[in-house]
């Protein structure tokens, strides 16, 4: 069969794919070169020095220079590959400032997606071409892993922790999505599709699936109904910190340390409030870990982000 038959199974559908493939094919080429070299030399020796064939069999005493050469040369090659790989890795870890955030919650055995505009989907993810997308991911139970081969991206999704991943899709189409961290019975069924659309089609799709409430306003509603505003609201009688514009702020903690209020911090403040106590407050906030789902926490975080006066990068996608 022609190899072309295979490779079309793996399209280059994100800006990530090409530089990665360059490294991949370079390494394949390099390894093939070395491997073929070793095989040829082995083969030649096996023929030339097989028993019974006349040949010079004097052994030279001096082997050190050769040994040092083939210690040093692979080492240098390896370091070259390492540096190259690291630059790509660094890029894959740093989403551009203008990335749109989409939220992903994994659970046995499905992917739940929440768009900032409030659109929800299960096991499918719609994204536009040309826009950097940042996925904020967490799991409700065990570890899963979000893998889209066509984008060459993969990231484990952990319970009680946010991990992120980003890509810019370049080619409209449907691409398979797999869970690649073993997560139990239906691990192999925990897949879906990433549907890449042109920006205009994507905008239409967003409109059609508009629920009327953005993620942030869903969060705002939760903030009221779950009782947060009872303590954190402007005219609450309880002594609790004002949460307007909390996202990205530097918070002073009781034990003297400071943290930046990122997603993880806010998540933990809600689910494990005792972990970090804000300086000057009593540790009276109850834990909401049985009360709120991970998806709801994401909505609240989106809401708290939106309260920040003066748009902040990560806040951009959140339409109030």
């Amino acid at each position: 069969m022609s190899s072309g038959g295979f490779w079309h199974l793996l399209p280059n559908a994100s800006t990530n794919a090409k530089p990665l493939d360059e490294l991949w094919w370079t390494m394949v080429g390099l390894c093939a070169l070395v491997a073929i070299g070793v095989f040829v030399v082995m083969f030649v020796f096996c023929i030339r020095y097989r028993k019974g064939r006349p040949a010079d069999r004097h052994l030279s005493k001096e082997t050190l220079p050769v040994e040092l050469t083939w210690t040093a040369v692979p080492f240098l090659i390896f370091m070259g590959v390492f540096v190259w790989s690291l630059t790509l890795y660094a890029r894959s870890r740093t989403p551009p400032a203008n990335a749109e955030t989409i939220y992903v919650v994994a659970k046995q055995w499905m992917w739940k997606i929440q768009h900032p505009g409030g659109q929800r989907e299960i096991d499918t993810l719609h994204v536009p071409t040309g826009v950097p997308i940042r996925l904020m991911m967490t799991s409700q139970d065990v570890i899963h892993s979000f893998f889209v081969p066509a984008f060459r991206v993969k990231q484990d999704v952990l319970p009680d922790r946010y991990t992120q991943l980003w890509f810019t899709a370049i080619k409209p189409g449907d691409y398979p999505l797999y869970c690649t961290q073993y997560c139990g019975l239906d691990h192999s069924k925990m897949g879906g599709q990433v549907i890449v659309m042109r920006p205009d089609a994507y905008a239409r799709w967003l409109d059609e699936n508009n629920t009327g409430t953005s993620l942030a306003s869903q969060g705002a509603a939760l903030f009221r109904t779950k009782g947060c505003s009872g303590c954190h609201g402007a005219n609450a009688s309880v002594h609790a910190p004002d949460l307007d514009g909390i996202y990205g702020r530097v918070v002073h903690l009781q034990d003297g340390s400071t943290v930046t209020a990122d997603d993880r911090y806010i998540h933990d403040s809600i689910m494990l409030p005792d972990k970090q106590i804000v300086a000057g407050y009593a540790p009276i906030m109850p834990s909401f870990s049985g009360e709120l789902t991970e998806g709801q926490v994401l909505a609240i975080i989106a809401y708290l982000k939106s309260t920040k006066p003066g748009a902040q990068p990560a806040h951009k996608g959140t339409k109030q």
């Binding site: 990665l20 190259w84 790989s85 790509l88 894959s92 892993s145 893998f147 991206v153 690649t180 073993y182």
Partner: peptide
Amino acid sequence: MLAAPALDIPLHA
């Protein structure tokens, strides 16, 4: 290849 983090991303698991 797996030891190169950039390549391990698509190849892992």
